[in-house]
């Protein structure tokens, strides 16, 4: 039987700390779907999933390596590089790996074949299983700064992940390369926000971003009854559907601080999430 690709639901936000992980874990639990923690700079879904780690694979990316004897210091590579990752000092090229975007262009333009490529480990992808769910986690190595290749590797990790009709991505915050890498190619984006001026400002940026990427999306409002109504008003004005609202409750925050999931703290949310998922992706619930 040919396994069809799962429906990919990306849970993102502009502002950090709005509840992406809280909702991602809850949605994955409700659907019985694998959860991909793509917030590789600070993955934290495992704190709630508490998995047994089964497998771990290093992820590398290619960066230039200069063979000094062959380098004439002509500067062809530095002219090509758009990220200032190479410069010529003392008639030899010098590499700044952390600025390199691994395009391989410098190697191609080098007239003396002085540039080779070498693998740098940027992090790892791990598979974890718990009674609650299957977790795939990307985790960047200390000192690394280039998240997108690791996010792609996390999204593409299939080894020993049980086949599923739906997959949930817990995405990085913000609206820059990591967030875009995580949401691009997904089937639907759920933008999680909170009813505060920061929440609204960053939601607007995130909406602009997913609109540009031409991805269908809806909004979830966490701590929905705190703050003010400006997020609700904005969504209404823009014709954006608010599909999930989670109330502000002290005991939910307390449960979170103990590493308990939203469904454990607020069991009545299960039916609401289930209804929405059923609407979004009929047949996606295990």
């Amino acid at each position: 039987m040919v396994q069809t690709d799962p429906f990919v639901l990306a849970v993102a936000s502009g502002k950090g700390g709005t509840g992406k992980t809280t909702l991602s874990v809850a949605l994955a639990q409700v659907a019985g779907a694998p959860l991909y923690d793509c917030d590789v700079e600070e993955p934290n879904a495992h704190l709630f999933v508490r998995p047994q780690w089964q497998d771990k694979q290093d992820v590398t990316r290619r960066v230039p390596l200069i063979e000094t004897e062959l380098c004439t210091g002509c500067g062809a590579c530095t002219e090509l590089c758009q990220f200032n990752a190479l410069i010529i000092v003392g008639h030899k090229a010098m590499v700044f790996e952390e600025l390199c975007h691994s395009c391989g262009g410098c190697r191609r333009v080098c007239p003396t074949q002085a540039i080779h490529e070498t693998d740098v480990t940027i992090g790892s992808v791990s598979l974890g299983l718990s009674a609650k769910l299957t977790l795939v986690q990307g985790c960047m190595a200390i000192g690394q700064v280039m998240a997108p290749p690791l996010i792609r590797a996390t999204r593409n990790y299939h080894h020993n992940v049980p086949p599923a009709k739906l997959a949930i991505l817990d995405c990085p915050p913000g609206t820059s390369c990591p967030m875009i890498t995580a949401v691009r190619g997904s089937d639907f984006v759920l933008l999680v926000t909170e009813p505060t001026p920061f929440g609204l400002n960053d939601l607007q940026l995130a909406v602009e971003t997913v609109r540009q990427l031409q991805l269908p999306f809806a909004v979830a409002i966490n701590r929905a009854d705190s703050g003010d109504r400006r997020v609700h008003d904005y969504c209404q004005r823009e014709g954006i559907e608010v599909v999930i609202e989670i109330p502000e409750l002290r005991h939910v925050a307390e449960a979170y601080s103990r590493g308990e999931t939203l469904l454990e703290a607020l069991p009545q949310q299960r039916q609401l999430l289930q209804n929405w998922l059923h609407q979004l992706c009929p047949g996606g619930l295990a």
């Binding site: 990220f83 200032n84 410069i87 010529i88 000092v89 700044f96 600025l99």
Partner: peptide
């Protein structure tokens, strides 16, 4: 106003 690598480029220029 360079996004990245301003220090490297400035160093290259003074070199």
């Amino acid at each position: 106003n360079a996004a990245q690598g301003a220090g490297i480029q400035a160093a290259q220029n003074v070199v």
